[in-house]
Computed example of a mutant assay.
Amino acid sequence: MNILHIANHIKQSGNGIVNVMIDLACEQSMLGHKVAVASEGGEYLALLRQHNIEHYNLDQTRKPMQMLQAFFHFQNIVRRFQPDIIHAHMMTGALLSRYSKGFRKYKIVTHVHNEFQKSADYMKVGDTVIAVSQAVAKSMANRGVNERKLRVVLNGTIGSKRNQRMEGISLKGRSIVTVAGLNERKGIADLIEAFNIVSGQCPESELYIVGDGPEKERFKTMATQSSSRNRIHFEGFQTDPKKYMSSSEVFVLASHKDPFPLVLLEARESGCAIIATDVDGIPEALDFGNSGMLVPPKTPDKLAEAILNMLNDEELREKYKRSAEQGLDFYKVERVAKETIEIYEDLLSDKYRMISRREEMNGME
């Protein structure tokens, strides 16, 4: 079938939405489907070409003139590619797909990655709405999406064509690592506050913050005001953060909201002892606490207690490292792609039945 994915960009910036889309597109192409991506472009363009995936440049800047141009340009893309499925990963693409449909026969699949955003309401326009976790599906149902339109496909990163295997690095002291966007939602301030407690009781501990984001300077200022400022390291965005994960003693994700973070699957694959907050899809990504320790969100004291327990108890730490690596076969990208293809086929089944019937009638003539 012809599958057209649409997102704002394909930049290699740590954006989980983009990473899921790229993984899906590559895997679907390998399964024999004709796949294309419409976006404003980015560093993943070379990877798409390697997998025979066509890319259409589409500027979706949310300004009146650019959106009008995007509307006509998108219609032209649809005419050229003739998609059976348009898979929209962001709000703008979902609306373009719906408003451009007219009498065209393609089906629209919207993929809800960040349901906490108000813009997630617009993802209702899909003929089918994919949620990345049961928690997201429940939230979308509460927001008015017909449950018959909702399907859950848990994220997976194992076997991703994006991954580049790198050697681990040498980290100082008792290393605590987080990989996250530097914004309030990811609980970076909570982690810095928790580390102030940890460092007082474990003087050899070191905190490595891997990632970039809009509130980087605020968090850096907060760190410089800490008594542990010399042991808090901002490492910036890394194309392969696994080199930090595989070298850490403890991996932490202190999110306030998180639908189903890919980084936890990457941490599990790296064999990390994981501590994360008990919110949204995080428990699902950690097998409800079996593959990582869960703590309440926005509680730096409890987070610090969990980190100290993990650092001070080698048996506990090794237990969580072993359990993190259990059951990872389920989180292969191949499984995600196949489940998504099944959703497409369900949507298109009426169309395919009509084509088969027409071919059968032609054969009888």
Score class of each variant (00 low, 15 high):
residue 300 P to R: 02
residue 259 P to G: 13
residue 285 A to D: 09
residue 322 R to G: 04
residue 263 V to L: 08
residue 302 K to N: 00
residue 319 K to G: 00
residue 272 C to L: 08
residue 261 P to I: 10
residue 307 I to R: 04
residue 309 N to E: 06
residue 244 Y to F: 15
residue 246 S to C: 12
residue 283 P to H: 07
residue 274 I to W: 01
residue 310 M to S: 01
residue 292 G to H: 04
residue 272 C to R: 09
residue 244 Y to E: 11
residue 267 A to G: 14
residue 283 P to I: 01
residue 256 H to L: 13
residue 290 N to W: 01
residue 258 D to V: 07
residue 311 L to P: 05
residue 260 F to N: 14
residue 283 P to S: 09
residue 322 R to V: 00
residue 257 K to M: 15
residue 280 D to H: 07
residue 325 E to F: 02
residue 264 L to C: 14
residue 267 A to W: 11
residue 270 S to V: 07
residue 276 A to I: 01
residue 326 Q to E: 14
residue 250 V to D: 05
residue 293 M to L: 14
residue 321 K to H: 02
residue 302 K to I: 09
residue 245 M to D: 11
residue 316 L to C: 06
residue 302 K to C: 02
residue 252 V to I: 13
residue 323 S to I: 02
residue 306 A to E: 03
residue 312 N to L: 12
residue 279 V to N: 07
residue 260 F to H: 14
residue 319 K to H: 09
residue 241 P to W: 13
residue 269 E to D: 13
residue 314 E to M: 08
residue 263 V to Q: 12
residue 293 M to F: 06
residue 265 L to A: 00
residue 273 A to R: 06
residue 277 T to N: 07
residue 264 L to V: 12
residue 245 M to V: 10
residue 317 R to T: 03
residue 249 E to D: 14
residue 245 M to F: 13
residue 258 D to A: 13
residue 293 M to C: 04
residue 301 D to V: 07
residue 269 E to M: 12
residue 324 A to L: 02
residue 258 D to G: 12
residue 308 L to H: 05
residue 248 S to M: 08
residue 256 H to W: 15
residue 274 I to H: 04
residue 295 V to N: 05
residue 249 E to M: 15
residue 284 E to S: 12
residue 311 L to M: 04
residue 245 M to K: 15
residue 279 V to K: 08
residue 246 S to H: 13
residue 245 M to G: 11
residue 247 S to A: 15
residue 305 E to H: 11
residue 296 P to Y: 01
residue 315 E to C: 03
